[in-house]
Amino acid sequence: MPDHRRADARRNYALILAVAEEEVSARGADASLEQIARTAGVGSATVRRHFPTRQALLEAVSRQRIDDLADRARDLTGTADSRSVLLTWLREVVAYCVTARGLAAALSYGGLDHDPVYENSCTGVLLEAGAPLLESARADGFVAPGVTLADLITLIVGIALATAHHPDPAGEADRLFDLVVAGASPTGPDEGQSIRSV
């Protein structure tokens, strides 16, 4: 889709986004919009014109990582071992959320400055890309009925936010993800190969 913004608006957007990426990397979801404006040398109104909410800013900053995860899901779709493939991809989502500051908040439905009218496009991209992986695993009996990808992404966001200040955030997030996996698995005498850890 062509970009019909004026050249100066495009330059401002690129500059603000570059500064925002550095601020979010340093301070996470609490990055100050006012500090971003000062560093970029623009007014706060200019920042808010491009990014009307903090959620919009976090989504823009996280977009490349989200696109990478979506591409990864598409690459894995159709692989024979549906259980292993789904878990591999979900673990990569966990790892991204733990290491990329601000990403978990970008995926949060009730994020900072949440506006129910504002569509969470990052989450939508992941749900669309990962749906075939979940459906394949469900068809093979590795995911309990009623478990949705939105459920799993919401749990991953919670894990990432809860472990952000842990001494070993990656290790703790991985441990908690194993608990989620066990809970998402079918139960019964014949489900020994359910969606346990990979």
Rank of each mutant, 00 (worst) to 15 (best):
V117P: 00
V143D: 00
R38C: 02
S44F: 14
S108W: 12
Y109H: 13
P145G: 03
Q35P: 02
I153Y: 07
D81L: 10
D113N: 12
S194N: 11
R5I: 08
D168L: 03
G41S: 06
Y96I: 00
V147H: 02
D68R: 12
A100I: 00
S108M: 05
L133C: 03
A164D: 08
G171M: 00
Y109V: 15
P167E: 05
H165A: 02
A105H: 14
G28H: 04
V125A: 10
Y96L: 05
R11N: 10
L57G: 00
L134W: 10
A131M: 15
I66M: 15
G171E: 05
H166R: 08
A73V: 15
Q35F: 12
R65Y: 13
E172M: 11
I159T: 07
L87P: 07
L161D: 08
I66Q: 11
A73L: 09
G192H: 14
V94G: 03
D140M: 01
D81H: 11
S32A: 11
E135C: 06
V61N: 04
L90Y: 06
R49V: 07
R10N: 12
G192Y: 10
L134N: 05
I159A: 04
D30I: 09
T99D: 07
T148G: 09
S25H: 13
E21V: 14
Y118V: 01
V85R: 08
R63K: 10
A100Q: 11
Q64I: 14
R49G: 05
V117L: 14
L87K: 01
H50Q: 10
S185A: 15
P189T: 07
R49F: 13
A160S: 08
H114C: 06
L86F: 06
G43P: 04
E191T: 15
A162H: 13
D8L: 14
D115C: 07
S197A: 13
G28Y: 10
E135N: 06
S44E: 08
E128S: 06
R175M: 11
D113Q: 11
G130Q: 02
T79A: 15
V143E: 02
R11G: 03
Q193C: 07
A37W: 07
F51N: 04
Y109D: 14
S194C: 02
A80D: 12
R138V: 02
D68E: 14
T163G: 03
Y118T: 01
E172H: 08
R6L: 15
I153N: 01
D67M: 12
G146I: 07
H166V: 04
V61Y: 02
D113G: 10
E23H: 14
A184K: 08
E22A: 14
R11A: 13
H4N: 12
M1D: 11
H114M: 06
A9N: 06
L17Q: 08
D113P: 13
L127A: 01
R138Q: 08
G183Y: 14
L58E: 01
L90T: 12
W89K: 01
V143H: 00
L86I: 05
